[in-house]
């Protein structure tokens, strides 16, 4: 008697399991709803990659958090990123945009640690200009060192006036 009772329970359990599984499988299969994707604004920095006789510009994306200033993040990243042409130890002290001119204030190392060469100097200025050009409100850049205007970094490029950041594409 007891055995029959147990068998009945097992049979019912099997039927219930099968039925439950079958019922669930009949429901339409829904792909999981994609949740809203967190899209952070991102900026890019431009660094030169030596290619034979010339340089290719590589755009490196940098994520920016909602509470951060994309311009500042871009410039800070430009100074430390791999292949940055900026002299070792250069820090961004301050940046402000007024009337289309970005005043970018760097630490002394920009000049003190400048290793020389017209190529290096041109690469520094060009990487700065390309990086700034993505910001719609920046038309020109003025480079400062420790709050003071400079005429040149390494005695080749003319920085006595604010330099335009956008241009017809350069020769390379």
């Amino acid at each position: 008697m007891r055995i029959r009772w147990i068998l009945t329970v097992i049979l019912l359990a099997v039927l219930a399991f099968g039925g439950g599984y079958w019922y669930a499988s009949r429901r339409p299969r829904l792909a999981p709803q994609p949740g809203p994707v967190q899209t952070k604004p991102s900026v890019v920095v431009y660094v030169p990659i030596s290619e034979g006789n010339t340089y290719r510009w590589e755009a490196k994306p940098v994520p920016v958090n909602a509470d951060e200033d994309p311009l500042r993040i871009a410039l800070e990243h430009l100074l430390i990123t791999r292949d940055s042409p900026f002299p070792q130890g250069t820090r961004l002290l301050r940046v402000k945009v007024e009337d289309g001119i970005a005043e970018v204030d760097f630490s002394r190392e920009l000049v003190d640690n400048f290793p020389g060469g017209s190529t290096t100097e041109a690469l520094i200025v060009e990487s700065l200009c390309r990086t700034l050009a993505q910001f719609a409100d920046v038309e020109k850049a003025r480079i400062l060192v420790e709050g003071k205007k400079i005429d040149t970094i390494g005695e080749h490029v003319d920085l006595s006036q604010p330099v335009p950041v956008r241009q017809g594409l350069p020769a390379n």
Binding site: P48, C129, E155, V157, D158, P170
Partner: peptide
């Protein structure tokens, strides 16, 4: 202006 558009000061 090959690398930088404004060229060299001198």
């Amino acid at each position: 202006t090959a690398i930088y558009q404004s060229g060299f000061a001198v």
